[in-house]
Amino acid sequence: MITVTNISKKFGKGKDAVTALDQVSFNVCEGEIVALIGLSGAGKTTALRSLNLLEQPDSGSIKFNGKELLTLGALELRQLRTRIGIIFQQFNLISNRTVFENVAFPLEVAGYSKEALVARVEECLRVVGLYEKRDVYPAQLSGGQKQRVAIARGIANRPHVLLADEPTSALDPLTKEEVLTCLRDINQKLGVTIVIATHEINIVKRLASRAVIFSGGRIIEELQVKNQKIEAKHEFTKRFLEVA
């Protein structure tokens, strides 16, 4: 579904340049939950954000259903982005819009008619279990509820894939659970493919079917998650799994 080949990315120029991604290749298959894991600065977030070009790689190729992303024009890029959902560590909800209006935002962008918009927003709010909170403002919600609103917003326009950038890292253990369940539900019931960047190994074990391990801007190895266990081969990964 998504094929990433040899993407590289540097931040800054000249001597101060930091290599965020160095010849990174991986792919995402239809219907799976794949986790990009690593420590801070390992490149997992940059790799995730490259998938909808929030970060533009300096070189390489990203193919989405066969279509090359790195050469898209501005309009094509905007159209593509309407079909890729994303959620963030800090939720990034619009604080002066109600829960309903936040979820409606991507549908307004996609040009939904009024009736279709209302029906779809209500449907998505039911999926994340927040229908009763539709007229409330984000400030009145808990962290877990805010992230669930963000998930509803992320899946509103029926995206092929949902990108999740550290979706549970700002939450306490109890609300982490709430978001975890919500993500698993939309994957299993709605068939939404999920790419998740996280440093929380427990999330990976419980949610993902595959883990891509990042360190220093490179991919160290790719592992299958079986029965909530990861069998690491590489020394670095073994240490990482022990401390994380």
């Binding site: 994303i86 909800l93 935002f105 307004e108 962008v109 996609a110 917003r153």
Partner: peptide, 20 residues
Amino acid sequence: GVIEAAESMGASVPKIVFSV
């Protein structure tokens, strides 16, 4: 981040100005 979220949903600049 709020503006980035709107961008990543494919919103145009005028849409971001008036709705965000």
